[in-house]
């Protein structure tokens, strides 16, 4: 059981949260222009690093708001949490620091 810090509510048990997978995956700007391969990449391919990962969580049993986190997928340690729209504080393999806008 992890203790996860919601940026609005503070630390709560893991069981209050839902997981949303990789963060900062933007919906295609022009979906009609995508090739099948690009659609496949958008729909089915997500980064899966062993190490730091920028990912989304939702505080389902609390404020029900989404937020982003940088977590180590090997140790499970949360390095940072940040609200949508806030810059990503730590660089990860799936997104550079300061890169996040969604």
């Amino acid at each position: 059981m992890m203790l996860i810090e919601c940026p609005w509510c503070g630390p709560r048990n893991e069981t209050e949260y839902g997981y949303g997978g990789e963060a900062h995956v933007a919906y295609p700007a022009d979906p009609n222009a995508l090739t099948d391969n690009e659609w496949a990449k958008f729909l089915f391919y997500r980064k899966n690093p062993k190490g730091l990962f920028a990912e989304r969580w939702v505080h389902s049993a609390g404020c029900r708001r989404w937020f982003n986190a940088v977590r180590d997928t090997l140790t499970y340690e949360f390095k940072a949490v940040y609200k949508p729209g806030e810059p990503q504080p730590i660089a990860t393999t799936n997104a550079p620091a300061q890169g996040g806008t969604k």
Binding site: M1, M2, E14, T15, G18, E55, R71, L74, T75, Y76
Partner: peptide
């Protein structure tokens, strides 16, 4: 366990 992980362990709940 719902999150991505390489730790070969999960949560007690």
């Amino acid at each position: 366990d719902t999150y991505n992980g390489y730790g070969q362990r999960g949560a007690f709940h």
